[in-house]
Simulated assay, not measured.
Amino acid sequence: MSVGETSVEAERDAVIAALAPVIDGIAATFGPVCEVVLHDYRRPEQSVVAIAGSVTGRAVGGAMSEIGMRIVARGEEAADELNYVTRTRTGQTLKSSTMVLRDSTGAVFGALCVNLDVTTLTEAHTVLGALTGIGRPPAELPVTTFGNDIDSVVDVILDDHHLRQDRAWAGLDRAARLELFRSLDERGVFAVRRSVEQVAGRLGISRASAYSYLSQARAATEAPPDPTDPTDSTDSTDSSGGHA
């Protein structure tokens, strides 16, 4: 590690150390419905370095959520995501903000996240709307997975894709397979160590095939292939009789 890199790492450490005590004050201001999480994305599998409050059930040493994975995937293009509303797998309605942390070079290395459990407020709003006759049907909220284990977060993302595709890997054509890997990459799945192996195992394909599909998906995103080109080198890397 060069002197410059050492200096940037020290700067990042200093930012994390300075923010760690701040999260307690933020959580105390909003009360028991608030959770504040400090993430260090340099270790995505254990990105939670400090937490105040308990809304998502995570602890120090826990993994980033799907939102964090998406931010890591966007790299320098990542931006703050403020006042978004999601639903947890357990049915809680959360109003959240994720503010990215950058070093002096502009690189994103972490995030400060605030999660407010507004489930009760949302239910009260629905009841009041029904009583006054001006209520609207609640909009379907996106579901966000939070967990201490990064593998479980990746598994949920894969399950979500499977439900939407409604087809097994063997039933997908080449375009659909590449789209699956492109979507997983866009959601930050492959920013996590061992995720390629995990995805390969879930899909029942070889690791080499998974890397090949990922490489081609990224290349296709940068420069879409000629649809008249009959070559399909990906399928030649599959090593399990069409189920790779």
Rank of each mutant, 00 (worst) to 15 (best):
Y41N: 07
Y41R: 07
R42N: 12
R42K: 09
R43F: 09
R43T: 14
R43Q: 10
R43C: 09
P44D: 07
P44F: 04
P44S: 13
P44G: 11
E45W: 04
E45M: 08
Q46H: 15
Q46E: 15
Q46S: 15
Q46D: 11
Q46K: 14
S47V: 08
S47N: 07
S47P: 01
V48K: 04
V48Q: 05
I51P: 01
I51T: 11
A52P: 00
A52W: 00
G53V: 03
S54K: 11
V55M: 09
V55D: 08
V55P: 00
V55S: 04
V55G: 04
G57A: 02
G57C: 05
R58I: 11
R58W: 01
R58S: 01
A59I: 13
A59E: 15
V60F: 01
V60W: 01
G61H: 04
G61I: 13
G62Y: 03
G62S: 14
A63K: 07
A63N: 06
M64I: 09
M64H: 01
M64N: 01
M64V: 08
M64A: 10
S65C: 14
S65Q: 07
S65R: 04
E66T: 14
I67V: 12
I67E: 08
M69N: 10
M69G: 14
R70K: 13
R70D: 12
I71L: 15
I71Y: 00
I71M: 13
I71P: 03
I71G: 02
A73T: 01
A73P: 00
R74T: 09
R74L: 15
R74C: 10
R74H: 12
G75S: 07
G75P: 02
G75R: 00
G75I: 02
G75F: 02
E76G: 05
E76M: 14
E76Y: 03
E76T: 13
E77D: 15
A78D: 13
A79Y: 02
E81M: 13
L82N: 09
N83V: 09
